[in-house]
Design a protein around this nucleic acid. Structure first.
Lengths: 349, 349
DNA sequence: TGACAGAATTGGAACGTTCCAAATAAATAG
DNA sequence: CTATTTATTTGGAACGTTCCAATTCTGTCA
């Protein structure tokens, strides 16, 4: 049952050299003679040697473990799955390997997962923090010299690098577009006000409104859960307003879908009777009916970018916290009313 | 810059005991006195000790590394993301940690990834193999006593456990349902014939057709890429047939969506003019218009199940290959024409 | 009091690698 | 032919843990 592991010493014996030489070969050192190198390699193949990284890591610094920890708050959400794929791409081609875990927005789980990763000696961590994560949670990591990159949600106060999408600019573009279509009363729907992302998006909304010379009206800002159900709720309140809005920018696509549902329930057709713009550009956005006009953020790109940043820090051996915001772009489809041949099929229910 | 790592010896010194005792505490041994245990724990907390699993793994068998490797062929596909989440759930609550990698259907990448995982000493592997994976690829793993569980796609010939959904029964149920709606000419569209999954689904289709007393007609089986584009192509051929079918079961949901596209392009309304049934029940299926009737396979359940199976084998220390097929169920929505507002009962075209 | 059992603790040795200083071999210079 | 490089190779000594056998400490019992 128990196979005796083939070690570097077995190889050495079989190849008639010392274990040190084998080690050098393993590391691709230029010190070793071409002849011996190939002989050693041949023997390795023959005996079916597998490198024991654990043992190696014992000697070397943890920076050399070549394991990158990736923690996301909701892998079910295709946004984060895409992000993970982006990370994996660059991490893998750099010869690292990815340790992916999902926290499902649970802070406790997040703590466990990060602790476990630390025990395994990760050389860096990319994390999209669970809601209400304490900025101090990653303190011990960076104190231990392990670079951390926070993505998507930023962690004000934590001295770590972060990379978030340009929420302000995105929201501004969305508002601008709606203004261009002639809307004067534009609502901001959904999202929890206690998050940094919410603040950014709201700020973008406000800037857009003011830049257009429309007055910023607090009444038009209606927060709710950042979900489909939250969207239904928010649009309900918006419709009930005295001076009813004719368009809305939503905290994210889920909210936007909910808003569409809510509109239909009131016999209003999204796109035709009321303009809706989302944020994120999840895959469902383009297949939906009507196709959702939304701000595209390219999660895979963020993943790639974050991974590159992390690798840079790992190689530098020094973690200077830098913050990057990635560009976003407005994707105009049908739900804002500017679509091609107006509501195609979507005849009213 | 370089923090001196806190080791078990530092703890021992500070707590006034030997390193062996500290080790026993770490392992929760009942041999150690309650008083010393709590003192040691206190010191650990105080000094910010972090366990070094790598060092531990060096002494213990690799079965104790508590790392589970998970390899999927396409993480972008929400089906597999869900699967990974399912695995993560049970793996995590068992105190293991997940090493997730994505192969993007590349066999080379798969080989690399698996090799890397092996170097890191995984105690087990769950894999949804890339297309055309050689059954022998996992031979060395099982030879080394590392349990492997193959999910979703099976690997005929490999002596490893596998867990696949009941493709036959699912397809049979789909056909039965269409027969019940009065269809006599039912096509099987999409998929590559060189895969085991295809064979199973086709067999289910055939059984269903024959059980209904309809003759199996090879002409009605039209293979294509298992993608949206493939679906468009397949329905094109189907429509061109002399004795045109009035309904189709599709290899998977992507194909089904493509079929709907193709129908619309020919001014036929899916559900009303032609019945379409998919397979997988991806999340988009219920939001689509018309909502897709499809066979639901619960990827998260497969993930959980697979993880349980793997853990069992790891704990048993013995890997007996067992094969499990999980139940599926037909979810009737609108695209088959049996939806709520029961549109035209698929009158012949 | 001595012997003995049980409970608690403890010093190495071992795991498979890397690193360092030092040894050897080969080549070149004086 | 010795001294000096230069190119290879090589034995330990780590790294941080676990395991084993052995030890010390407390009682208990005859």
């Amino acid at each position: 049952m128990t196979k005796p592991r083939v070690t570097v010493i077995d190889i050495a014996k079989a190849a008639g050299v010392s274990k040190s030489t084998v080690s050098l070969v393993l590391q691709g050192s230029s010190l070793v003679n071409e002849g011996t190198r190939s002989k050693v390699n041949a023997v390795m193949r023959e005996l079916g040697y597998v490198y024991n990284r654990g043992a190696a890591n014992l000697r070397q610094a943890s920076a050399k473990s070549r394991i990158i920890g990736v923690v996301v708050n909701d892998l079910t959400n295709s946004f984060f799955a895409e992000l993970a794929v982006g990370v994996d791409m660059v991490v893998q081609s750099a010869g690292f390997v990815q340790f992916l875990s999902n926290t499902s927005e649970s802070i406790d789980r997040q703590r466990e997962v990060v602790a476990s990763m630390r025990e395994h000696g990760i050389s860096g961590l990319i994390v999209s923090p669970a809601r209400a994560t304490d900025a101090a949670d990653f303190k011990p990591l960076v104190a231990a010299g392990i670079p951390v990159v926070v993505v998507v949600r930023n962690l004000p106060g934590a001295k770590v690098s972060s990379i978030v999408s340009d929420n302000r600019a995105g929201m501004m573009a969305a508002v601008e577009h709606l203004v261009g279509l002639g809307h004067k009363r534009i609502a901001f729907l959904g999202g929890f006000p206690d998050t940094a992302v919410f603040d950014d998006r709201l700020a973008g909304y406000r800037s857009g409104i003011e830049a257009a010379g429309l007055g910023y009206d607090e009444e038009l800002v209606i927060s709710s859960a950042p979900s489909r159900a939250g969207g239904v709720e928010a649009i309900g309140k918006a419709i009930g307003l005295g001076d009813r809005p004719t368009a809305a920018v939503c905290f994210n696509d889920a909210v936007a879908f909910g808003v569409c549902d809510g509109l239909r329930a009131r016999r209003l057709e999204p796109g035709a009777d009321f303009a809706v713009v989302g944020f994120d550009d999840v895959i469902e956005a383009q297949a939906a009916v009507p196709a959702l006009t939304t701000v595209s953020v390219d999660p895979q790109g963020i993943g790639r970018r974050g991974a590159q940043m992390l690798l840079k820090q790992i190689n530098a051996g020094k973690a200077e916290a830098e913050t990057v915001t990635t560009a976003v772009r407005l994707v105009v489809r049908e739900s804002c009313g500017a679509g091609k041949a107006a509501p195609a099929r979507a005849g009213r229910a």
